[in-house]
Design a protein around this nucleic acid. Structure first.
Lengths: 241, 241
DNA sequence: TATACTTGATGACGTTACGTCACCTGCAAG
DNA sequence: CTTGCAGGTGACGTAACGTCATCAAGTATA
């Protein structure tokens, strides 16, 4: 049975020695043997475990979660929640990227950055974020104001929506029908989020979906394609029958 | 002239009081007036400056960089480098997402996660990552092995490439010709990275670009479209004349 | 054999952008 | 006079290590 030292393992898996010592320290990966001088020796099983850890880490899972997964726990729960988290990160990143790109563009156009322009830009996106509310009559606006508290980046509800939209897009791309387990899952989450937002007011909810079909520039909302809308409707239809 | 306290500003801009105090502490945003008891008072100018900070922060810029931008410095350099950074983050995130999606899929298919499958999956992507080398004759492989050290996720060179590719795609989308400043910039960075990789061996470099034209599944490399290739070639042609 | 080099180990502090106590203070209301 | 509130200042905690400084064992060299 061969045993590897920290240095060897580190080189082999392309990680730092410090990392291995850290994993030992937080009891994530304890080498199966230690010298009488404290020298660490890793077995093949240890390496396999490390491999798992590296894979999970490549999914941006925090080490704490990795420990739980390794000690068995509902894989799916952790992974799906993680997937949603990643989608949120992705959407944040993408807005960040488009903002940056706009700024770069502005530099080229105007030579020097004019902060008025920048402010204007951000202001516009703020304005747009609320403009779609004009599609609703006055009495309903109050409810909307309350039920969709912050339409800023940080809003959890909108992030959940975006996560769901992405999942639906993904399903469509991978030819997963709305009449599947995943579809049912999505439907239930959709309903949950909708109820959170609209407090059971189905009428209001219907209207909201109608509005969402309008082009993005008009509403300032995250755009929804026809396919996704159809997917969503079929999901919900499948579950409610 | 109205002056605002920390609490008022915090509420207004939807940030925490702690944040304001922190910005004062690190001298990023020092209120223009302080009470004889140390109470902070922000002027309109301060609020404007804060607005800038918030915008820049929304671009995921670290506060250190924000300070530099605020005190004037080549906006463009910082922003473009930041843009590249974001692109790197994006590509990492995207592989992360697709891995996660695959894993979730596997759970559905196999009920419980089999680590053998996972390993296999990762192994395959590793295999693919080196497969394209078969397009080169033996003598050149050695150089390639050395010059493109790790084709893993962490490799900086490949990340730079990906960043450049994304920038070119972006230019194409925004109708920016290769014969522009941005094109020249991209060309010089392309040449720089190529030289880093191929150590001035133009012959080898040419071949590498040829290989890149092949479909992604075959090479395991990040795919390049015809347009981008043409864009790159025109960029370089423009600079070298 | 003395010396130097390599590889390993162990603290301990640094990093980012704040969150979260604990504790103190000036001021207005009840 | 107490209470409460809005403000203040440290100081510690966070995630996942990077980066010293220092020490010990084993190996190679002069």
């Amino acid at each position: 049975m061969k045993r590897w030292t920290t240095g060897e393992v580190a080189k082999q898996r392309n990680i730092s020695v410090r990392t291995l010592r850290y994993y030992d320290q937080i009891q994530l990966l304890t080498p199966s043997f230690k010298d009488d001088h404290g020298k660490r020796f890793y077995s093949e099983d240890d390496l396999f475990k490390l491999e798992k850890i590296i894979i999970l880490k490549s999914l941006s899972l925090p080490l704490e979660d990795i420990r739980m997964i390794l000690d068995k726990l509902t894989y799916k729960q952790i992974l799906t929640s993680h997937y949603n988290y990643l989608q949120e990160e992705l959407s944040k990143l993408q807005t960040s990227i488009s903002h940056t790109a706009s700024l770069i563009n502005m530099i080229d156009l105007e030579e020097s950055l004019s902060w008025e322009r920048v402010s204007e830009m951000v202001q516009n996106s703020r304005k747009n974020a609320k403009k779609w509310m004009d599609y609703f009559p006055e009495e309903e606006k109050a409810i909307l104001q309350e039920s969709l508290p912050n339409l800023s980046n940080n809003d959890k509800t909108i992030q959940k929506y975006i996560g769901l939209l992405r999942r639906m897009e993904w399903c469509i791309q991978h030819n997963i029908t709305p009449e599947s387990d995943e579809g049912a899952q999505i439907a239930s989450e959709l309903i949950e989020v909708s109820n959170e937002s609209f407090q059971e007011d189905n009428n209001l909810m219907e209207k909201f979906w109608e509005v969402r079909k309008l082009p993005a520039e008009e509403t300032g909302l995250y755009p929804i394609s026809e396919e996704v809308l159809e997917f969503a409707e079929r999901c919900i239809a499948y579950v409610t029958t």
